[in-house]
Simulated assay, not measured.
Amino acid sequence: MRIDIITVLPELLKSPFEASILKRAIEKGIVEVHMHNLRDYTDLSYNQIDDYQFGGGAGMVMMIEPIDKCIAALKEQRDYDEVIYMTPDGKTLNQKIANSMSLLENIIILCGHYKGVDQRVRDAYITKEISIGDYVLSGGELGAAVFCDTIIRLIPGVLNNETSALTDTFQDDLLAPPVYTRPAEYKGMKVPEILLSGNFPKIEKWREDKAYERTEKLRPDLIK
């Protein structure tokens, strides 16, 4: 997979890709992530990429021309499966979306800023709009990092144990069951005996039951 991220603040995005799973995925050559500074695509003084909105109102708006130039330059080099705009009024990211997006090969992610982008950008260039929750961030960079993490970890070869991702919370519309590790007893707190039994069919049944119980208690909306 190749991910091209269009941003006003590329420095804000670097650290998530320089550690842990995302770093290993890049080093293995499984995924490429490239940052593109939108200010490199404007001819205006002071590298201006935003302006006042027509009709008045508070907040600056990202202009269409620099975004058009950047997307056009990228599309000259390859075809893209999706051009994604990170925005609080997009479709809320969930595991099903992450699963499907992890199968793609080339993605552009546009990070919004200020009051957002000129609507003509959304109308003409964006193929999918994604939100990471019903709240507003200072820009789309943190949302883009979250989105990238959710999809990159699902690509075969990224995780050391590929079955781990298949048992994550939300993969089957259930929360994950409780998990334990050594020691089997600590200050009187014991690991459930079933997990120490070695009876794997019964262990799996226990996990399924606990996943359902947790979901019913904490997130009944998922079951409905």
Rank of each mutant, 00 (worst) to 15 (best):
M1Y: 01
R2K: 11
R2E: 10
I3Y: 02
I3M: 07
I6G: 00
L12E: 11
L13F: 03
K14S: 10
P16G: 04
P16C: 03
F17I: 04
A19D: 14
R24V: 09
A25E: 04
I30H: 04
V31A: 02
E32G: 00
H34R: 13
H34Y: 10
M35E: 14
M35Q: 02
L38V: 03
D40G: 12
Y41M: 06
T42Q: 07
T42C: 13
D43L: 08
D43M: 10
S45G: 12
D51N: 12
D51W: 04
Y52F: 08
Y52D: 10
G56Y: 10
G59E: 09
V61C: 11
V61R: 04
M62V: 14
M63G: 04
E65Y: 11
E65T: 12
E65P: 15
P66N: 03
I67V: 14
K69M: 09
A73G: 06
A73N: 05
K75R: 14
E76G: 14
R78L: 08
Y80P: 02
D81R: 02
E82Y: 01
V83L: 01
V83F: 00
I84L: 10
M86R: 04
M86W: 03
T87C: 15
G90S: 07
K91W: 06
T92F: 13
A98M: 07
N99E: 13
N99H: 10
E105M: 07
I109G: 00
I109Y: 00
C111E: 00
Q119T: 05
Q119C: 12
D123L: 09
D123F: 11
A124C: 11
A124I: 11
T127I: 05
T127H: 11
K128H: 12
E129I: 13
S138Y: 10
G139W: 03
G140W: 00
G143R: 02
T150D: 09
T150N: 07
R153P: 01
L154K: 10
G157I: 05
E162P: 07
T163G: 11
S164F: 13
A165L: 14
T167I: 11
D168E: 14
D168N: 05
T169V: 09
D172W: 13
D172E: 13
A176R: 08
T181S: 15
R182M: 10
R182I: 15
R182W: 12
P183K: 11
A184R: 12
E185T: 12
Y186V: 05
K187A: 03
G188K: 13
M189K: 05
K190L: 02
E193P: 07
I194L: 05
L195G: 00
P201S: 07
K205L: 11
R207L: 14
E208D: 06
D209T: 14
K210S: 13
A211H: 00
E213N: 12
R214S: 06
R214D: 03
T215D: 01
K217T: 13
K217D: 05
L222Q: 07
L222K: 12
K224A: 15
